[in-house]
Computed example of a mutant assay.
Amino acid sequence: MYLIMFGMSLMFILGLCGFALDISRVYNRKAELQAIADAAALAAARELNGSLLGVTNAENKAALVVSQLMYRYSTAVIPWSSNALRFSASATAPDAGWIDSTAAKASPAGLMFVRVDTSQLDAEVGRVDTILLRVVPDAPLGGQVTARALAGRVSTNVTPLAVCALSTTPQAPLPHPPPPATAILQELVQYGFRRGFTYDLMNLGSNGALPAHFAVDAGDPLGTRDVAVNVSAVFIAPFTCSGTMLATKIIGGNISVAAPFPIDPLYKHLNTRFGVYMSRPAWL
């Protein structure tokens, strides 16, 4: 009688212990995958800026971060795939509003959020086989766990400094008179700029036609009409040299400017590679 009761109790105890241990393995795998998904989403989101390069960098950074993390109790590396990445312009978009990396690269404008879903990785990543629980009749042989993380950029740090190119030509050679007994030397000129030479930022015009200089609105979102105070000398002074402003995107939107640039009260903020102006230069 006692042996029968002990046998029944032992089966129950083993089943309970097996359930506790196997469930703990499931929870641990879930925690591992969630940490990896969080890290990948954050790494990718930092690169998003509404451009093709931003999406490409986001894809690469997510892969790099995941390659440095381990799972299965720190014994294995996740077999990563970009299929786990989805991009969207809104954090609350439905599933249909999230696109894969191929579609994101084709139309990157406005994509500021990334989602990582480990269910899109190899099924083995989320599979957890039961071990001790199998002593119980009809117990499941295993389970599947997944993790999902979402991260995004609501803004991008940019420096509100606009420089008009002197030429529309990306690059062209600039010939120089040949020294004795040598061939003609050529210097690379990019958009009208010669490397190593200083130039007057206050006298750069579109295609080199006429001098033009503007104050960039550093306080309003791109694509909106500027508020007058946001292009005043007092407001833009901290941005003139190396300040940054928050922008939801850096391409595909109109920039608000005011002309002319208030050079008289702001010339001291204009640094050059040689130092800081202590008095108003004669050429301003």
Rank of each mutant, 00 (worst) to 15 (best):
A147I: 05
A172T: 14
L111Y: 08
R25L: 02
I255V: 15
R46V: 02
N157V: 06
F87I: 02
N230M: 09
A209F: 11
D220T: 14
L53C: 06
A218Y: 09
L141C: 06
A237V: 07
L150H: 01
D22W: 00
I99N: 06
L266D: 06
A63S: 09
A62I: 00
G275D: 06
G18N: 03
D100S: 10
T102Q: 07
N49E: 11
R194I: 15
Y2W: 06
L133V: 00
E47A: 15
A93T: 03
V77K: 14
I36M: 04
N157Q: 14
A172M: 12
K268M: 08
A93I: 06
N254C: 11
P140F: 01
V55D: 01
I263S: 12
V216H: 03
N49T: 01
N83V: 05
V189F: 00
F261Y: 12
T159S: 13
H269W: 03
G205M: 11
C17G: 12
T130G: 02
A44R: 06
P178A: 15
L3I: 13
T244L: 12
T169E: 13
T156S: 12
S9M: 11
A109V: 13
T56A: 12
Q68H: 09
T248W: 04
P140R: 03
L133A: 13
Y27T: 08
G142I: 07
E59F: 01
A151E: 05
A233T: 09
I251V: 15
V125A: 08
A282I: 04
I78N: 08
L10K: 02
V158S: 06
R195L: 14
K268R: 14
A20V: 04
L222T: 04
A44D: 00
G208C: 08
R25A: 09
A62K: 04
P160C: 12
A147H: 01
A39H: 01
G110F: 05
R86T: 14
P137S: 06
L133F: 11
N230R: 12
T168M: 10
G152M: 04
L210K: 13
A212I: 10
M1H: 12
N271D: 08
I251Y: 11
I23F: 14
V128H: 07
V231C: 15
P140E: 01
W80A: 09
P173G: 03
A43H: 00
S90V: 07
D217C: 14
L33K: 05
L111I: 05
S67T: 00
I99F: 09
M5L: 15
V65E: 05
A259N: 08
M1G: 13
A39E: 01
A162P: 05
A165G: 02
P265S: 09
S81P: 05
F19R: 00
A247V: 14
F235P: 01
V276Y: 00
V234A: 15
D217H: 10
A35H: 13
A233W: 08
L14C: 04
L204I: 02
A282T: 07
T118P: 03
F6I: 14
V66I: 12
H176G: 04
G252C: 12
L111C: 08
Y27N: 14
A31E: 05
T92V: 12
L42Y: 13
W98Y: 09
L52E: 14
S90F: 11
V116K: 07
Q190I: 10
A103W: 05
D38R: 00
P262R: 10
M70I: 06
D220V: 13
L53W: 06
N49S: 09
I251C: 11
R148Y: 03
